[in-house]
């Protein structure tokens, strides 16, 4: 860990800086290095544990190995949990796009007041803690005409509502960058139906915004635990619930699981940021 801190500390010394400001700079670099160390500690320790053959009462692990990762990835229960998480997350994202894109389109073209409304509505899932929502969801859908509790469906529908802030804002923002009305009119003048004009002209134009929303909400939904555990639990075990149920397992095994989940989230966030980077580059070129 001290090696890490040294790395960051030595970094800013490389560029030639005015000698007068150097002492003050190093204090600030020290603070940044300290906070970095603080934030990196749990991650580094978990990574070390996941790669260690054994790590007893010593400061450093005895040896390095990939066997915990290989063991995890070949566990059928992990593979199933992974597949279930993908199913629920992809289902929720597809459904939320199908539901939200028409709303964003109409808010942009026909009902400007609707946009104000939606901007207020998207705050609700942010403001209400998941524990609170799940109290109501459990009572409403445990029995009665829609007994969804315990099935993946309730997760899909609930995830649609909590992904709404990301999805709506991203779609609405990308619609703002194009002239929807002229594009629709032009396509229809050339003989397209409103439907094909939407799918062949509007949708390709907002594709990047939609992709950014998908990647960001994907990583957010894969990390969701509260709804998954309270509404469904072991009846449809997703990745986070699986991790929680593995608390009795070897620390090396769970560390490999934690690192795997974290790397997966990082990959999705990176893909999302890369897409938005492309969008900015494209705008700058235009």
């Amino acid at each position: 860990m001290s090696q890490n801190a040294d790395l960051t500390l030595s970094r800013p010394k490389a560029p030639a800086l005015p000698t007068l400001r150097l002492p003050r700079l190093s204090i600030h670099t020290l603070v940044v290095g300290g906070v970095f160390t603080l934030l990196a500690l749990p991650l580094v320790a978990t990574l070390g544990y996941a790669l260690a053959t054994s790590w007893g009462a010593t400061l450093l692990p005895d040896g390095l190995t990939l066997k915990w990762f290989l063991e995890l990835w070949s566990t059928p229960r992990f593979q199933l949990a992974f597949a279930r998480s993908m199913l629920v997350t992809l289902g929720a994202l597809v459904l939320s796009l199908v539901l939200v894109v028409p709303v964003a389109l109409l808010a942009h073209t026909r009902y400007p007041r609707l946009d104000t409304w939606m901007n207020g509505l998207v705050l609700v899932p942010f403001a209400v803690p998941p524990v609170v929502s799940s109290v109501g969801l459990l009572q409403l859908y445990a029995g009665g005409p829609l007994p969804l509790v315990g099935s993946p469906w309730i997760l899909i529908f609930t995830y649609v509502t909590i992904a709404l802030p990301f999805v709506y804002r991203a779609v609405a923002n990308s619609l703002r960058t194009i002239d929807v009305k002229s594009l629709m009119d032009a396509a229809q003048l050339l003989g397209a139906t409103p439907f094909s004009a939407f799918f062949l002209v509007i949708l390709p134009n907002i594709r990047i915004g939609v992709q950014v929303a998908v990647f960001l909400s994907f990583s957010f939904l894969v990390g969701e635990f509260v709804f998954a555990n309270m509404l469904v639990g072991t009846r449809f075990e997703t990745l986070q619930v699986y991790l929680n149920n593995m608390r009795g397992a070897s620390g090396h095994f769970t560390s490999a699981l934690v690192i795997t989940l974290f790397l997966f989230t990082l990959l999705l966030t990176w893909l999302g940021n890369r897409q938005s980077g492309h969008a900015i580059a494209k705008d700058a070129n235009a």
């Binding site: 500690l41 320790a45 978990t46 990390g223 560390s255 699981l257 934690v258 974290f262």
Partner: peptide
């Protein structure tokens, strides 16, 4: 910082148990 803000919930608890 952005990266660590993604590290929350159950994985965070497990990482702290290790640490």
């Amino acid at each position: 910082t952005n990266m660590t803000s993604n590290f929350a919930g159950v994985p965070l608890a497990f990482a702290f148990i290790i640490l």
